[in-house]
Design a protein around this nucleic acid. Sequence first.
RNA 1: GGGCAAGUGGUGGAAUGGCAUACACGAAGGACUUAAAAUCCUUUGGCCGUAAGGCCGUGAGGGUUCAACUCCCUCCUUGCCCACCA
Length: 799
Amino acid sequence: MSYSFKEIEEKWQKIWHDKKIFSVQPDQERKKYYLLEMFQYPSGKIHMGHVRNYTIGDVAARFKLMQGFQVMHPMGFDAFGQPAENAAIKNNTKPDIWTHKCIDWMKAELKRMGFSYDWGREVSTCDSDYYKWNQWIFLKMYERGLAYKKGSDVNWCSSCETTLANEEVIEGGCWRCKTKVEQKDLEQWYLKITDYKERLLEDLNQLGDWPERVISMQNNWIGKSSGVEIYFKLKDLATVIPVFTTRADTIFGATYIVLAPEHPQVLDLIKGRLQEKEALKFIEKVSKETKVVRTSSDVKKEGVFTGSYAVNPVNNETIPIWIADYVLMEYGTGAIMAVPTHDQRDFLFAKEHELPMRIVIQTIDHRPTTIEAMIEAFEDDGIQVNSAQFDGFTNQEAKIKIAEWMEQTKIGKIQTHWRLRDWLISRQRYWGTPIPIIYCSKCGIVPVPYAQLPVELPKDAPITGEGGSPLGKVKEFVEVKCPKCIGSARRETDTMATFFDSSWYFLRFCSPKLDNAPFNVLDAKYWMPVDQYIGGIEHAILHLLYSRFFTKFFQDLGMIDFKEPFKRLLTQGMVLKDGEVMSKSRGNIVDPDSIIKNYGADTLRLFILFAAPPETELEWDDRGIEGANKFLNRVWRVQENLLPKADDVLLRTMHRVIKKVSVDYAEFKFNTAIASLMELTNAIYQSGADKEVFANLVLMISPIAPHFAEELWQILGNKESICKAKWPEFDPKMLVEDVITIVVQVNGKLRTKLDVPADIAQDKLKELVLSEERLKPWIEGKSIRNFVIVPKKLVNIVV
RNA sequence: GGGCAAGUGGUGGAAUGGCAUACACGAAGGACUUAAAAUCCUUUGGCCGUAAGGCCGUGAGGGUUCAACUCCCUCCUUGCCCACCA
């Protein structure tokens, strides 16, 4: 007989909802625990990835609740974004209506999973109560010069008809649709995240409980590199070309310099030279290439001579100036010193164009190398040669000495360069937060006054998918009076990137209904930072970097007093089917709803936690689902045969399991926690359980299979919800064994095991071991060289 | 090209210096049943052996150690991130 999951799950979901079991308010007397899973985009259906993410979080939240914490576990919807526009066109409806319908569907699905959310805190970013505060934050940033508008080359996705942030360009394509990203010259709004680069880098040190690879990915993205900016004088002009290098140790080997084709000084350098025509043609050609083509490393490096010469400041050598496509204007100074002997790109370029080379670093053993013998650049560490007073130093020493020397002699300047760029937030789309800016022909850029917020998104803009900001077509929206001069003016028609919305929602959850500020300072003081954040690795840079930036901004506004928003981060692995990511296009989706229907939410929750540890990829297995269901039924049957008193062996097992499960839950090792619960259940099947043992088993299962446990809890005669029952404690006395098993090894190989009293003296143990009959063949007639005793565990005889 | 992570039975996985393969799936056998399902019990890394037992075994090779899946070095494979970044 199996338990009737359908009835039980519906029953308890209703009771939890009616009694507002998971509703929570700050309580200064109790310790808080803020558990947050990344909120979701309301696509209409939850998939297994959501189920996994939210189940992991739910078990942790329920566990903490039973341990007496004041647990905040909220959920909301990241509801703005382009898919709603596309869906609206396809289904002939409006993004607003579509999105709200999707939210309702998804909420119903989440409720069927039995998640312990405080639905009283729900927020949707597409509601004006929420996006009003996006606009407020934007204006605060504008006031501080952190939001600014500039014209420049931007990433453009022709399929999505909008601009993209650097973080949204993945392998040269749009993160959403993979369309190759083009470059376009546009006036756009940016956030000055680069003002925070040092802090964003520095404070990564505080994130000890984040996965190391997320830290290193952010590190990489911020991309700090230290080096020297070196000033190369032109041979016959009074100007100077600055170049940036991280390899100051190779300066004596710099035999030419190379500028990016779009470098502002290039036109002056080629003017009137023989090479002018050819150079102009080359610049023209490169300008037409997309960034993707130009930066793919397998393309041959092309370039032309400018006809001009510079002087290497360390040895006064005259060296030619080239332009080449492999030098990029947006990094460093847009110009490099080329050291073909010690940089592979320069090496290839020099070979191609027959440019001079000089070796300035040799291998540690001073093995001579000739330029003729070189088939590739020597990029490893070594000893300086041909470097004047720096000869003989290791190149690492020389790097520092040369940099200092150049700074003293004003040849160069020690500098740091960063990869991180400002964040482009303008999107030429409808379904997003309107940027609260007005353009007046007299007054210029005028921010919308705070009192006029929110700038409401019109509900009925014409969405055709044909490009151009749809808001531009809504006359009533665009045409406004200038707040300064009351003259006629025009609204900004771009909306904000949706990553703006999700960069601070965790703060909004602290005071979701507040109408005079984005969040209440005292509420945030109580709840923040998030104790445990859970989400997918795909946000390792984008969302997590932006959220860290916003948090630091709020800190600067004096609204919060901590540096980092998420204390601990867990990135859950993906759910696979047949070794591939579940996706619509692959047609290998397993629908959570059908599993709930056939086996119940508790079974689904149990399976998804048991099949793999949270961080690793999880291979979907239909038979595993049945196994999980079987286990619940096995536990269910225990209640039918409870004994008046359990035996001592079982009690010991129970205490051991309580200890193990408590530790495992705290460390998110749900798969081994479940294994222990199975062991306890198997032990119960061997000897029979009494009410106390069974109650503890039910309590420990409850975070994973809450409806199931709640029902059994009630059958056991409890009146209160198991959700708020006290987590069982183990008795350390019950873990102490009188007799222990000692492993006996000879030369590190297991030979036998001995049961001995736990408090046996070492010499007594030795005596016992040596008299053991079964060891005779291994030790007889051999001299014992060593006798290692690991207390209470093992002895190893070395012969 | 650089960085990081991983590699364990037929399968998912456990063990982070001390009994390799916990727990589960699958498979085989048994009990119950007219039969099946469900349930319960037993066996289940490979090789040799009737057995007792032995030998081998955590991607490959080397090292440290009384003892290595675990630590160190070299290599292979897979996955992820970054990348003409100067």
